[in-house]
Design a protein around this nucleic acid. Structure first.
Lengths: 341, 341
DNA sequence: AAAAAGTACTAAAACGGTTTAGTTTTTTTA
DNA sequence: TAAAAAAACTAAACCGTTTTAGTACTTTTT
């Protein structure tokens, strides 16, 4: 591809061995008894010819790429891009690189990405999985390949996992709505609903409702397909509003749905919190900028990422460690989108 | 690291050569006259042992990694994360991987990242540069290493570049403010102001003002340090409001600044567009959700990315092509944050 | 003066693929 | 029936590093 100078080139022009060059440039010259004079010559030539080591070759030799993969559904989602940024920072402090891939919630795509990362010899991966099948992860465990799940766990196998208590957070949020006097409360979920975080949030909604005496017929759970959030949200909101028992509170199960809801409210001229109370899961910048501001559940992103990176790098350093599961608590940030009835 | 099966292992158990295994698994078996029976055996064993090619080894041999780097100031900024997503999609359609790194606007960090990507033998890189020195790029050109600049160009060397006409877009936006009757118009820039996009936007502001008869003394350009946007924006807005000639219109030079402005407006109880008219450069979701909605300049992100990827992959395929410069036109999306005076 | 120790280096293997240039065996052709 | 062609495969080089196990020479020790 490009005019590249290798160890061999340096060795040749200097009339010494590749070994010597390698030793010197890796600062092992003195320990290996290379004379100062020779070392100087090597450094000088390397600089002059702008020698740049081929890290692919080194990676092959060392069986290490200093690269970690991050698999998420969509890096353009601020929830994930913020995480990515934290992870990148923690990794780069330890001289690791981050590769990010988006799956669009497609299990098959995720499978391919994980395979590719594996084949590219990434030292480990961090995954917010969209798969319900556990095959990939079982395989990785069999191979003792380091990985950490974040945000979404898979029951049935014990893996490293860092996430939050989705059930409790949702339960608390819905209870808050009820406490403020709301009774017609709908939740809007996003497919695939089989991912653990969504499932737990749905469960949190159902239990909070049931515990307050609202049976299944009084619960309204709407499911929005991931690939047509915007249009589906709008029509569903219309339905909820125009139903015989119009909804007066809405819980949005993630930031994606929430943004679509806010847009729909505006288009349909539904005023918050007068016409409808609103709570979102995941806190984003926009929620502090709207009028009214949006009450939301905020995840401790940085902490999640810190743990994920720590555990992953630890496992990379010495495999065969016990799997760790860390469940953190998000906080309900009360703003203005819910008023007392 | 993990239990890995190699070509050699397959060859050994089957009692054939590595060559044969390689040929078969790369679907060149038939062309190279390997019998169907043997091929079947190879595929079967590969599947059984879950053979996964070592892409690092392949990369070394082929001098190709099928990886492209993206260097931006902050992947958590929605402007860049959206771009990243587009680029990822275009690349993955051509079987390329994307590695994203954030520089926090630090030239030294960018320099290191570019060097690392080069050493990791990425096939090419896409950069929104924070550097004012041109050394890195001159070096890359000397090496005929494929790269494309996006968003921010560097004058003084002819490179591939995809971006927008920042001057014209800003000029138009400020003229729009003036046309609506505003005269006390401030612009809020972000450091480092030497990056081309910011510089051009500042120039656009200055020229629009000057062309309408507002001389330098009537122009108000505020510069916010990148690393303390939030606090600085607030104090600067206070100053602008409390000055002897209070500002009645504000132009935010990018989405970062704009979000901080909106937060500050809220905290300071400044009402849009009554107390101040507001326009932002870069359009983000939040601008459609605020009350009033925010008039903003929208860049054709997808198109920029499409061009960038096209040009980069073309150059990777056959180096030594003429450098291309593509300047696209953003559009001013008029919403509610500017009212006619 | 022979053995031991120290100094300054190097040859070659290894990492796991791909590719070039064969080789061997069988079948076809003249 | 010998030469040519086809079929089915392989040895070895190569990519650019790192590392192991040396070598050759000089100096010190006993």
């Amino acid at each position: 591809m490009s005019s590249t100078v290798t160890l061999g080139d340096l060795a040749l022009t200097l009339g010494v061995s590749k070994t010597l060059i390698s030793l010197v440039l890796n600062n092992k010259g003195t320990t290996y008894g290379i004379s100062q004079a020779t070392q100087k010559k090597v450094f000088k030539l390397a600089k002059k010819l702008n020698y740049q080591p081929n890290l692919v070759a080194r990676g092959l030799r060392e069986g290490k790429t200093n690269t970690v993969g991050l698999v998420v559904s969509d890096i353009a989602n601020p929830f994930y891009s913020k995480m990515a940024r934290h992870i990148e920072d923690f990794l780069s402090a330890k001289d690791y690189h981050l590769v990010i891939c988006s799956t669009d919630e497609e299990p098959e795509r995720e499978h391919k990405i994980i395979k590719l990362m594996r084949e590219k010899q990434f030292d480990g991966i961090i995954v917010s999985t969209s798969q319900r099948k556990t095959g990939d992860f079982k395989q990785l465990m069999r191979e003792k390949y380091p990985f950490v799940l974040i945000d979404r766990k898979i029951k049935s196998i014990k893996t490293n996992f860092i996430g939050i208590n989705n059930f409790q957070a949702t339960y608390q949020a819905v209870k808050y709505l009820i406490g403020e006097g709301y009774s017609q409360i709908a939740a809007m979920a996003v497919s695939p609903v089989y991912v653990s975080s969504i499932k737990e949030r749905i469960k949190g909604y159902r239990h909070a409702m049931a515990d307050s005496g609202f049976d299944l017929t009084q619960q309204r759970l709407v499911e929005i397909p991931f690939d047509k959030v915007k249009t589906a949200v709008k029509t569903e909101i219309q339905k909820l509003i125009q139903s015989p028992h119009p909804v007066n509170a809405l819980f949005a199960i993630n930031n994606n749905i929430a943004v679509a809801c806010l847009e729909a409210f505006r288009e349909l001229q539904i005023a918050l919190p007068k016409d409808i109370a609103f709570i979102a899961f995941d806190d984003i910048d926009a929620f502090r900028l709207t009028t009214p501001t949006v009450t939301a559940i905020d995840q401790p992103l940085e902490e999640i990422c810190q743990h994920a990176v720590d555990i992953l790098l630890n496992e990379i350093a010495r495999p065969r460690r016990a799997k760790k599961e860390i469940i953190l608590s998000p906080s309900l940030i009360i703003r203005q989108s819910v008023k007392k009835l």
